[in-house]
């Protein structure tokens, strides 16, 4: 099977849709040879390698041979700098600018490793912007909340992450991806009614809503993440099943249905690193 990778894979609705389509086209493949042909691809947003990496990993676990060909020199350069290339071809090049946030796969029990990864890739790296200690703390805690959400709700085995720092725009994009139960599946089971992917994501982002059953409260993580990104003038994107949900730096929510379903959840956060807010919150 040959998959032609589209010309632009960006952090936009169409970019996520392309990723979902690649999952969809290959979902039944076992013991096959799958070629991802990049001949037309001129741009691939680095953080989305978390989702692409999850796809390749998933296909390999179904005993498929994966081949990547015709990589454009710029795309290849991105793949090499953040370590993704080493997963597929066995080589990593030096990132002279230090703007990449390494592609990494974690087991769900690897919380300590994940913490070290965040420290080394985001907070202690010389090339990363100097942010206030309050901002650093809030960023790390919110990323942990996403990691934990994936563990608690998706039942997945692995979590994939990758990111990029855009120094001119003063932005960091970081994606956290799982291939597990989708938000739509969980909300549908919990409410015991049919619900669209979009409405399920919207429901999950509202305070106190949680699909957790039992005696442990929940439903705060995504709400606090939204509050933080609103203050920070950052952006949140959630893609799960056939839902695309985005809250931009002006607090405007965009919700759209994708043609194909993503078999898990992608959470992408865009952090405004130029934010000078101290994040000293007063007690309620």
């Amino acid at each position: 099977m040959i998959i032609e990778v589209p010309s632009q894979i960006e952090n936009t609705f169409s970019g996520y849709q392309h990723i979902s389509e690649m999952f969809d086209k290959t979902q039944n493949e076992e013991f096959g040879d799958i070629v991802f042909d990049f001949i037309d691809c001129r741009w691939f947003d680095a953080n989305l390698l978390a989702a692409f990496g999850a796809l390749i990993d998933n296909l390999e676990s179904n005993f498929n041979n994966i081949n990547i060909r015709n990589l454009d020199i710029r795309v290849e350069s991105i793949f090499k700098k953040n370590g993704f290339y080493s997963i597929i071809k066995g080589a990593r090049s030096i990132d002279h600018w230090g703007t990449t946030i390494k592609y990494q796969k974690f087991k769900t029990v690897d919380e300590i490793l994940f913490s070290k990864y965040l420290d080394s890739e985001l907070f202690t790296k010389k090339s990363m912007p100097k942010m206030s200690s309050g901002l650093n703390k809030r960023i790390k805690e919110n990323i942990f909340e996403i990691f934990n959400n994936a563990i608690i709700h998706s039942g997945c085995e692995y979590i994939y992450t990758c990111g990029q720092y855009f120094h001119k725009r003063e932005r960091i994009d970081l994606s956290i991806v799982d291939i597990g139960k989708t938000i739509r599946y969980n909300v549908k089971e919990f409410l015991n009614k049919n619900i669209s992917g979009i409405d399920a994501i919207q429901w999950a982002t509202e305070e106190s809503n949680t699909t957790r059953i039992g005696e442990i409260p929940g439903g705060l993580g995504l709400k606090l993440l939204r509050e933080f990104l609103k203050m920070n003038k950052g952006k949140l994107q959630i893609i799960s099943d056939n839902g695309f949900w985005e809250e931009n730096d002006e607090g405007i929510i965009e919700k759209r249905e994708t043609n194909t379903c993503f078999p898990g959840t992608i959470v992408n956060i865009e952090i405004n690193t130029g934010d000078e807010e101290e994040y000293k919150l007063s007690n309620e």
Partner: peptide, 21 residues
């Protein structure tokens, strides 16, 4: 810290509502 106490208070409020519901 005050910031962490804020998180504790949010968790408390959320838990009270959760069990009430």
């Amino acid at each position: 810290s005050d910031e962490d106490l804020y998180t504790v208070n949010r968790v408390r409020k959320n838990a009270i509502e959760f069990f009430l519901k």
